[in-house]
């Protein structure tokens, strides 16, 4: 029953497998076409997959359920640092540290969520932002996190004697985890819980009052998503820590929350596919901007400023002209085609 069920739900998402295979092929295709060093491109692909995992959790919470949270970078940090500390100081296996960091992030999210999730909109946003900020500053101050020196020599994942040292192996590991988490997110969205949280999304035609009077417990449903988002972020953080093998506070800056939102909005804020697409496009553009910059400009710090300006304009543009993100493009084109055909038929008739 269980096995049949799992295989059935896999079959339901044949599309997902196609896309993942597509990503793999894109990778190898690009390696030749661009003539870039494979090492560099591969590491970009790994970052895309890790970010897609983190953004996926945020997409469910922030996009589909409409809860504004800037706490994701904090849970990303909890995931990364828990993994880093446990694997370097206690020599635990990365698999264990990843599981433990996800668990810890979930518990922390549950405790915080119980206190703040009855709050609405920007109040929730501000409180989670404060939490992220505090945690980010703490990582630079505490001895256990290594302060600004950080933690180094974090080991890679291993199965028996096989260690995921090669980037290509690590890439497939991250991709596999992304696939599992994507399936779980899709399953959740296509279930009663998914309907519940779409029903109570006040930013997308929902009604909290109606949802409550139909028996939905708002608090626990929101908290479930908050925990799930934290777990996804922690898994992403853990994969990041075991990949780069060195942790410093900077990647866990509160700015990361806004970049995640950019990814989610870019891909499609109401879609479970959005975060994956958004993460890919974001990193593609980011690398493109860095490479497209003339010699010497990049070093002057103008590169970073340009990047921020371009992404800000992009963010506003997407919200204004393509509010459902890139995933909505095919259906928009189809609709346009349908209208054009209808118009042509009308003209032909009259």
């Amino acid at each position: 029953m269980t096995f049949a069920g799992i295989s059935r739900s896999l079959l339901n998402y044949r599309k997902l497998i196609y896309i993942l295979l597509g990503l793999v092929f894109v990778l190898f295709g690009l390696l030749d076409a661009w003539g870039l060093s494979s090492k560099y491109l591969l590491s970009t692909m790994i970052f895309i997959a890790i970010n897609a995992i983190v953004a996926l959790g945020l997409g469910l919470l922030g996009g589909v359920a409409g809860q504004i949270s800037f706490g994701t970078s904090a849970f990303y940090a909890i995931g990364a640092y828990t993994s880093g500390i446990l694997s370097t100081q206690y020599n635990l296996s990365p698999w264990l540290t990843m599981a433990f960091s996800a668990f810890l992030a979930g518990v922390v999210a549950y405790i915080i969520g119980r206190q703040v999730l009855h709050l609405h909109g920007f109040v929730l946003g501000v409180i989670t932002l404060a939490f992220s900020w505090i945690l980010w500053r703490l990582t630079g101050q505490l001895t256990i996190t290594g302060g600004y020196d950080g933690i180094s020599h974090i080991p890679r994942f291993a199965i028996g004697s096989f260690v995921f040292t090669d980037d290509i192996h690590y890439y497939f590991l991250v991709l596999g985890i992304l696939a599992i988490l994507q399936i779980i997110a899709l399953n959740l969205e296509k279930s009663r819980i998914g309907r519940d949280f779409r029903a109570m999304n006040i930013y997308h035609g929902g009604s909290e009052v109606a949802a409550m009077t139909l028996g939905i417990r708002l608090g626990s449903t929101k908290n479930l998503l908050f925990v799930l988002c934290a777990v996804y972020a922690a898994i992403g953080g853990s994969l990041y820590a075991h990949y780069v093998s060195y942790l410093s506070p900077e990647p866990f800056n509160i700015h990361y929350n806004f970049i995640l939102y950019l990814m989610v909005v870019l891909g499609g804020i109401r879609s479970v596919w959005g975060p994956m697409i958004g993460a890919s496009v974001y990193w593609g553009l980011k690398e493109g901007i860095t490479y497209g910059m003339p010699e010497g400009v990049a070093t002057a710090g103008i590169s970073a400023a340009t990047e921020i300006i371009i992404f800000a304009v992009l963010f506003i543009g997407i919200i204004t002209f393509l509010p459902q993100g890139l995933v909505s493009v095919p259906s928009l084109l189809k609709e346009r085609h349908r209208r054009k055909t209808a118009l042509r038929h009308e003209r032909a008739l009259g």
């Binding site: 069920g5 339901n12 279930s191 009663r192």
Partner: peptide
């Protein structure tokens, strides 16, 4: 619910 197994499909 997360794995779409067990009672889930029947209930849906």
């Amino acid at each position: 619910i997360l794995l779409h197994i067990g009672r889930f499909m029947k209930e849906e």
